[in-house]
Computed example of a mutant assay.
Amino acid sequence: MKEVIDNSTVLIIDDDQRNIFALKAVLKSRSLNPLCASSAAEGLALINSEPAIKMVLIDMMMPDMDGYEAIREIRRSGRNLLPVVAVTAQAMVGDRDKCLAAGADAYLSKPIDVDQLMEVITRMIK
Score class of each variant (00 low, 15 high):
46 L>G: 10
34 P>M: 01
60 M>H: 04
42 E>G: 14
29 S>N: 13
8 S>N: 13
44 L>A: 07
15 D>S: 13
51 P>Q: 14
63 P>E: 11
7 N>E: 04
63 P>N: 08
7 N>M: 09
63 P>Y: 08
25 A>F: 11
59 D>G: 09
55 M>P: 02
28 K>G: 14
62 M>G: 08
29 S>Y: 01
33 N>M: 08
37 A>N: 10
10 V>E: 09
52 A>I: 09
5 I>A: 04
18 R>C: 15
19 N>D: 14
10 V>Q: 12
61 M>N: 13
59 D>Q: 06
29 S>C: 10
63 P>A: 03
58 I>F: 01
34 P>T: 03
14 D>M: 10
5 I>G: 10
62 M>K: 03
45 A>E: 14
35 L>R: 12
35 L>H: 05
36 C>D: 09
11 L>A: 06
48 N>Q: 15
19 N>K: 09
40 A>F: 06
41 A>I: 03
7 N>G: 13
31 S>N: 10
45 A>L: 00
35 L>N: 10
47 I>T: 05
52 A>E: 14
40 A>Y: 02
56 V>S: 01
44 L>W: 00
39 S>N: 07
18 R>N: 15
5 I>W: 06
53 I>G: 04
25 A>S: 15
63 P>K: 08
50 E>A: 13
47 I>C: 03
54 K>W: 04
20 I>C: 14
43 G>L: 08
8 S>G: 15
14 D>L: 07
13 I>C: 04
5 I>R: 00
14 D>S: 11
40 A>L: 04
35 L>K: 11
51 P>S: 13
42 E>F: 05
19 N>I: 12
50 E>R: 09
58 I>A: 04
39 S>C: 08
25 A>G: 15
26 V>T: 09
64 D>I: 00
8 S>H: 07
19 N>L: 13
4 V>P: 01
30 R>H: 11
39 S>E: 10
39 S>D: 10
8 S>M: 05
36 C>I: 02
60 M>V: 01
59 D>R: 00
60 M>K: 02
41 A>Y: 00
7 N>C: 04
6 D>T: 06
48 N>Y: 02
35 L>Y: 02
33 N>I: 00
42 E>R: 04
17 Q>R: 12
47 I>Y: 01
54 K>P: 05
62 M>Y: 03
26 V>R: 08
4 V>F: 00
4 V>L: 05
35 L>C: 09
38 S>F: 12
34 P>G: 12
50 E>Q: 07
35 L>W: 03
37 A>R: 02
39 S>T: 10
7 N>R: 08
56 V>W: 02
55 M>T: 09
55 M>E: 10
42 E>K: 03
25 A>E: 11
36 C>F: 03
25 A>Y: 09
59 D>N: 05
26 V>E: 12
58 I>Y: 01
9 T>M: 12
44 L>M: 06
43 G>Q: 03
45 A>G: 11
53 I>E: 02
13 I>P: 01
21 F>H: 14
9 T>N: 12
18 R>P: 13
7 N>W: 00
37 A>T: 09
33 N>E: 12
25 A>V: 04
20 I>L: 15
14 D>W: 00
7 N>L: 05
15 D>Y: 06
10 V>L: 11
56 V>R: 01
